[in-house]
Amino acid sequence: MKTVQFREALREAMSEEMRRDENVFLLGEEVAEYNGAYKVSQGMLDEFGAKRVIDTPIAELGFTGIAVGASMNGLRPIVEFMTWNFAILAADQIINSAAKMLQMSGGQYHCPIVFRGGNGTAGQLAATHSQSFEAFYAHVPGLKVITPSNPADAKGLLKAAIRDEDPVVFLESEKMYGDKGEIPEGEYIIPIGVADIKRKGKDVTIITFGKIIKVAHEAAAVLEKEGISCEIIDLRTIRPIDYPAVVESIKKTNRCVVLEESWPLASISSEIAYHVQRYAFDYLDAPVMRVTQTDTPFAFSPTLIDEALPNVERLVKAVKATLYRN
């Protein structure tokens, strides 16, 4: 094992795949000469040259559409969005073009393409720069959606995404790029669609994904001191969701809390809650609880951020509610 930053894990994944396959290339704003707005692609221009590490103008719709067309014609683009908030401008090409191409062409054309970039809140950036897009893109058949929570998963899943024949939405976080973690030496791939038990426990299952998992780990440590054992399931892939892993855990703990960084309505947490009541109803000893961001646009001031985001206190309270404890 070796210790690397999250951004380095992503870079290793892209560079290894670009060495392996000439048809893989990276494009986006500031990815080449600036070395990446968040330094994910640092050094890649030097290794692969301007043909394969391509700076674009600020034109998300245009460069995403060009990448989608290139993917229809034999290439395997990695499209970096500076953040997923800006990718709203490219949503037409992701949702109407890439996600539909295989089906609308009756199986003739497909889009092996990865869309990746920072997702979710990242400090005091206010409403337009702080959104999470798991639920938006997971809604769309034809896409796959991945949200890694640590460097090892990020590398293995990004390599899987680049090799996948379907369009993949890969959601990272500006706040995680500097996180350090251990990753295996040498090549490895983590399959898409497989959840991971990040902490074993027996009393309550906490289901979560992405960087908010840190809150789950902190809450689990607090609860352990009170004699409550939490199992943390990291979904890692949001489309398709590993429902069997969710149900298996709940069969063991009989209690479930979903922790999600984004808003509550039509969310991943509401989807999980539906599925659990439908397929694990007889195993539940308490209603499914969830902790999400408040049902409001994200705001600038620190006090408003504290109010908006899920935190350890709220999660501890939700876990205890499933145990009928205060």
Partner: peptide, 28 residues
């Protein structure tokens, strides 16, 4: 669509094919 004739659609969203078509040229 007809891949055997290099006919790549057939696209319903006005203007979307402009970018995609440029991408087809990009790949060539």
């Amino acid at each position: 669509f007809d891949k055997s004739r290099n006919f790549m659609g057939g696209h319903g969203i006005v203007g979307a094919q402009i970018a995609m078509g440029a991408g087809v040229g990009f790949a060539e």
